[in-house]
Simulated scan of single mutants.
Amino acid sequence: MDLATLYEALGVPEEAGPAELLFAARRQHYTLPYLVLSAVARHGVEMSDAARAELDRARRRARRYESVLAEVSAQVAVRPVKGPLLARYYPDGLLRPQGDLDLLVDNERDLWRVVRLLMEDEPLYLGVSMLGTPTRHLVVTMTWTPEDSLLDPEIRVEVATAALVGDYRGVPIRPALPDDALVANLLALGEERFQRPFHARDAIDVHVLGQAQPQPSTAQLVAAVEEYRLAPEVRELLAFTAERLSPGALTALGEALQAPAARELSRRTAHPVSVGPTRQVPAALADGSPVYGMPLRRVAGRSGWEGVRTHLFGDDALLLTPVGDYLLVTDEVVGQERYDAALRELESDRIAEETP
Rank of each mutant, 00 (worst) to 15 (best):
T145G: 00
V183N: 09
Y168W: 06
Q98C: 15
G210M: 05
A162E: 05
L85Y: 05
F240L: 05
Y89W: 13
D152K: 02
R244I: 06
R57V: 02
T5K: 06
A70G: 02
A249Q: 15
A352H: 07
R113G: 14
Q258P: 00
V299R: 14
P146E: 11
E46N: 00
L69R: 08
R27D: 01
E122I: 03
I173E: 00
R196D: 12
A212V: 03
E191S: 14
L182P: 11
P260Q: 09
M294L: 15
L189N: 09
A19L: 06
P322W: 11
L85K: 08
P295Q: 10
A317T: 08
Q75Y: 01
G293T: 08
A231L: 07
L182F: 07
Y65H: 09
R267Y: 13
R52I: 00
R96G: 03
V12L: 10
E8N: 07
D349S: 11
D202E: 11
E147V: 09
R267W: 13
D331N: 10
V68L: 09
G248D: 08
A77G: 04
E233A: 10
V281E: 08
R52A: 02
F194G: 04
A50S: 15
G335K: 06
V281C: 09
L111H: 03
Y228F: 15
Q215T: 12
L104M: 07
M1A: 07
S129R: 11
E122S: 15
Y228D: 11
L189I: 15
Q336V: 12
F240T: 10
D148T: 06
E347V: 02
I204F: 06
T143N: 03
D121G: 06
T31Q: 07
I173K: 05
L95M: 07
T251L: 15
A25G: 09
L101E: 02
V81H: 02
L186Y: 03
T241V: 10
R309A: 11
T278H: 04
P175D: 09
D315F: 01
D92G: 03
P80H: 07
